[in-house]
Design a binder for these strands. Structure first.
Lengths: 340, 340
DNA sequence: CTGAAAGCGCTTACAG
DNA sequence: CTGAAAGCGCTTACAG
């Protein structure tokens, strides 16, 4: 430990460097140590510190996909919420993949102070055996019984906290909007990841549509990863079935999926919303300049990240904290449903 | 080390776990150790391993912004190129910010096997004092002398390798395209980060435009972070000056900037490309569904990431490797310059 | 081929 | 208030 150039012992330096000098180190020595640290640009070796103390100031964010701007917003929120005390590092899983046990083991080996996981699946959570603070984002419990499904209430028996969007509110606003416009047969283009939030979007859509005398046509072929081209292809594949079923409005798992639909629709000469109204989830920034501009359920990723960071900090520091708020999900209406 | 349940010594386990058992451990023992490891799901503690061996299997990717889908593509390429041997973790700097010395120190404390930095500035590189393998992406050297500026050649005296795009080729294709269409006065909406690639885009544009008898109007007010709204505002601010200068075509530092321009242009009732042709860099997926679809210099982020990973692996493992290829940057022509 | 031992750079009780 | 010492969980020469 080079910084003992301050003329004190290693222990004293360690104390000061970790801000634990209150009432342990004289103000004079503390000051000299701080100077020495500043002069040498000293940073405690992460490995040694983690090994000795059994923890670190690392927070790992596990996200299934980084190419969706939505995740950029979440990261921004996390960074803002975490502040300077913790260093955020992002672990990106392959597109459409769920983190594996092996990948998790390697993350655990880093001994992070906390882990944040976005849009996991139930299977992933089963497998998760982390002894660090953990917060889930957009990880709604799926209803497991028909009673639950009917009531919308879900047993809250999960190990980790989850900060969630008000998907139900968003779906209701969406369906009310489409209902007023006269749509009764809807299609759903899903996200092909083992992610529960996509599944829930579909379930909520089906349940709430039924209440309104509408019908949702969804199946396992009508889905793709979060990628414009993949979504465009999935739409081309599914459209004949939807058309035959009389579908006049299509709900997409994300805006990126919706972009793919817009592209295919244009290629097929299909007017949007004339022949098919299109809606997405996310409300990406670019949805205001798409052709046509996209109606979308806005999912404020930054607010989600910020709330997630708060929950995580409380857990890391052993504080109790108010339960995470449900992040509002408003419908933003644009020309892809109402025309110009 | 729990895995000595295999009935061998700690050292033997360590050897096997690290694949260094060739000719050191009997096949029988090696097998027993492997079994024990598998059964216990053992993963060597990263901190202890890094501390003892002085290195790790961690690769850190430093990127200035995660909300641009372009970076998602780079990450995909890096992951693919790195394979399973190294774990990729992404460190996201604030939008428009450059990593600070402190942030770098904390990264160094992680003792990564390698570091990859996207779109750094020269100042950042000066400050960089890393003793690990380092590869730069999209970090072209700026011409520092007028002779260099004139020739386009730049002294290759940099500490780290850089994998770059053929920005010059892209700029030339772009200008030829605009020239044929009759544009002579161009605007440039820049990226407000201390990132050299944005600066170089502007320099190349100015130099190549001059050769073609065109003029580029660029200044320090005409720039914004990579954010649609920010770019839209910057455009509104700059448009009067450009209009007075007779600008008929606008080149944007990224597609995201261009989206902002499209939004403002629509709000101002300005036909694109009728009154103003618009071009971006990146060719994001959503540029095919923007209104109008965007002409853009395609920057293949995935190829860049893959090439970067190759260079990094060679450096980590002490191999020599062919110099990184220059990644081609083609012009993709769409309606934002040629109309429908 | 195998095991006992030193050491990586810190933190944290514990004496002084 | 301060320093000497043990120990975090590994890896790596080094004897055997």
């Amino acid at each position: 430990m080079v910084a003992e150039r301050a003329g004190t012992s290693v222990a004293t330096v360690s104390l000061v460097a970790n801000g634990k000098d209150a009432g342990h180190v004289s103000a004079q020595n503390a000051e000299r140590v701080r100077q020495a640290i500043a002069e040498l640009g000293y940073v405690a070796d992460h490995a040694a510190r983690a090994l000795a103390s059994g923890s670190s100031n690392l927070v790992v964010f596990v996200t299934p996909d980084a190419s969706n701007p939505y995740f950029g917003a979440v990261i921004r929120g996390l960074r803002a919420g975490l502040g300077d005390a913790y260093q955020l590092l992002v672990s990106v899983t392959g597109e459409g993949d769920v983190p594996t046990a092996a990948a998790l083991g390697r993350l655990a080996a880093l001994r992070p102070a906390g882990v944040v996981v976005d849009a996991p699946s139930e299977a992933f959570l089963e497998e998760l055996r982390l002894d660090t603070a953990l917060v889930l984002l957009d990880a709604p419990r799926l209803p497991t019984t028909t009673a639950e499904a009917a009531s919308g209430a879900v047993a809250a028996d999960r190990r980790a906290v989850s900060v969630d969007f008000d998907l139900l509110g968003g779906v209701r606003a969406l369906l009310d909007h489409l209902h007023v416009l006269g749509h009764r047969q809807l299609g759903y283009l899903g996200g092909r990841t083992a992610t529960d939030t996509f599944l829930l979007r579909r379930l909520l859509l089906e349940r709430e549509a039924a209440v309104r005398g509408m019908r949702v046509h969804a199946d396992d072929r009508a889905e793709s990863i979060i990628d414009l081209e993949a979504a465009a292809a999935a739409f081309v594949d599914s459209w004949p079935r939807w058309r035959d079923a009389g579908v006049t409005a299509l709900v997409c798992a994300t805006d990126t999926h919706a972009y793919g639909v817009l592209q295919s629709a244009r290629a097929m000469g299909m007017p949007v919303p004339g022949e098919l109204a299109v809606v997405g989830f996310d409300d990406l920034a670019s949805s205001v300049v798409s052709d046509p501009p996209l109606t979308s359920v806005r999912l404020p990723g930054e607010a989600l990240g910020r709330a997630g960071a708060e929950q995580l900090l409380a857990r890391i520091e052993g504080r109790t904290v108010a339960p995470a708020p449900v992040i509002g999900a408003d419908l933003v209406i644009r020309a892809s449903t109402i025309g110009r």
